[in-house]
Design a binder for these strands. Structure first.
Lengths: 126, 126
DNA sequence: AAAGTTCTTGACTGACTATTCTAGAACGGT
DNA sequence: ACCGTTCTAGAATAGTCAGTCAAGAACTTT
């Protein structure tokens, strides 16, 4: 049925996830995502619909594999989602809420700890 | 010495602070800041130099009055700073580190708690 | 091999971005 | 009353942003 896709969706999502974690949502452009994934803009839009669509897919992937991940990895993208998107995006907020509710640890402390680590704090002098 | 300033710098900083807290750093444009402060673009640039300059001043103000503020108010802008700026801006990171080091509470938990509250979580169903 | 379908590609668009510039207005000093 | 200085006002600029589109390529089915 038609021309086969030349890129791996999961791989693109993984690459985009790393990018979002490193640069934030508003902080990284579609150009950067195209560059990091190696997938053409048009192809990304055909599959995910929008930049937000890409992010939501990344978030869903992290949520789905949350159990298998270390506490750092599973929190990083949530941080971005909570600070930049959740307040104005019901779906993102809902995914975040669902993910966190599955954690057994203290969510506030885990997120706060990871927040500081990601910012480069709590590992030496100011 | 020259024409007197027609706006109150502290008031502008306070208005900008609220805006940054509500919409994030990348999430709010200079247009929005001009609108919220009621100060002309040129005047803002004359005083603060850049959008980043405005943010840093807001952060400094919060840091300086951190002792007088409730835990929510003093954490909100730090969240934005830590997630969006600190990783790539040494000065911002330094201000954050200095502020947090003065807190007597568990910084990670306080930030995490505020993070969830700001996102609209932990106050009802998902 | 022709038709139909799905994907890729590169160029394009209009809106929005932070920042700058110039002209003029309001002050203090002389 | 003029001069130097500091601020304001509005328009302008160049760059970046997310998103779109038409043309062609790779596949399956008939």
């Amino acid at each position: 049925m038609g021309r086969p896709r030349e890129f791996d969706i999961d791989a693109a999502v993984a690459a985009a996830t790393e990018l979002f974690i490193a640069e934030g949502y508003e902080g990284c452009s579609m150009d950067r995502i195209v560059q990091a994934t190696g997938v053409h803009r048009g192809s990304l839009y055909a599959v995910f619909g929008s930049k937000r669509g890409i992010f939501v897919e990344c978030l869903r992937k992290v949520a789905a594999t949350s159990g298998e991940r270390k506490s750092g990895e599973r929190s990083d993208l949530l941080l971005i989602a909570l600070v930049e998107l959740a307040a104005r995006d019901d779906e993102v907020r809902s995914i975040c809420a669902g993910t966190i509710s599955l954690w057994r640890t203290d969510a506030a402390r885990e997120l706060g700890t990871r927040l500081l680590a990601r910012a480069g704090l709590n590992e030496g002098a100011p």
